[in-house]
Design a protein around this nucleic acid. Structure first.
Lengths: 166, 166
DNA sequence: GCAGGGGATGGTATAGTGTTGCGTAAATAG
DNA sequence: CTATTTACGCAACACTATACCATCCCCTGC
């Protein structure tokens, strides 16, 4: 299936239910437990395509009546990351749902600085270029962090060229 | 001129003097001041090819008799970043000297997780691939963060395949 | 030489992000 | 039903970064 672009209007409920379904299925397969807390936090992250800080999550959890402290959140995020269900955006210190948890690890993130939406690309051509360069250096890659900040097409149009000009 | 590979033995004093010379020249051109503090911090960062945390710098400064507080260090780092003399590695919360401050902004960093050395690549082919993908999305790039963690060739050899195996 | 102004630095406090360690509770296995 | 593993609650702390104000220094013009 194709995934909706975050910055286009789409039925976001589908994103959430899809993500939760896939999460349940992945945990089932892996023999890990998608507990109530983990599901709750994953769903919180999927409330939008905007990355959420750990302390944002913490605040929402506490608003929702759960007594949580930072370790609770970070542990859960570690689990979700380990399962490939969420990604950490290093340049933002924030977390976003992974749109294709079964494939597409080490993705490439397009971060709109106006609307804060993040689009995850698979970007095979970029991956190949990286692989070629690192190979030439004899460098063995474990993990790549590729985060691109800028302006998404929706915001470029919205601005009428305010930032699109230069 | 060609730059030495950080993880090969090289006369590192040259890296430092080159970097300092270039820094002086760049500041001269830009009409900014490479003050004693700024030079001191830049030189600290260039002590090695390993990224240095802001609080590492702070500790060394204080060891060296200067009374500094965090804002002093961050201000100075901001300046040095603004001049393109150092880069911040988001995935490490640390700073490294820029090997080619006059060109090569938005570089690509190969981070060895064993020896901690960082090599900065220009990586035009990667940049082109990114540009192509983002262009296809209609996304306007302002800044790219590309940090690749893994093992450098020197450490791969040193380990005799300990990590190189898998 | 000297006042004025702007950039650079010193310093306190505080905000934001992430971790350690330990004890308890819940789920699963035997 | 006990033992073991796994998850969660909680306190304290470590690390990273910024806001804000005061002071200093250097350059400029006089």
């Amino acid at each position: 299936m194709t995934h909706a672009l975050p910055y286009r209007t789409h039925n976001h409920a589908h994103c959430v239910t899809d993500a939760m379904d896939e999460a349940r299925s992945l945990c089932q397969t892996a023999g890990t437990r998608l507990t109530q807390l983990r599901a709750q936090i994953l769903e919180l992250i999927w409330q939008s395509h905007r990355p959420l800080g750990a302390y944002d999550i913490l605040a929402i959890l506490n608003d929702q009546g759960r007594k949580a402290a930072p370790p609770t959140v970070y542990r859960t995020l570690d689990f979700l990351q380990g399962m490939g269900l969420v990604h950490r955006i290093a340049s933002l210190n924030a977390f976003v749902g992974c749109s294709q948890p079964s494939h597409n690890h080490n993705g490439c993130f397009l971060i709109c600085e106006e609307c804060q939406n993040v689009l995850e690309l698979s970007a095979d051509s970029i991956r190949q270029a990286i692989s070629k360069e690192t190979g030439a250096q004899g460098f063995k890659v474990r993990e790549t962090t590729l985060e691109i900040a800028g302006t998404c097409p929706a915001c470029i149009n919205k601005d009428g060229g305010k930032n699109g000009a230069q």
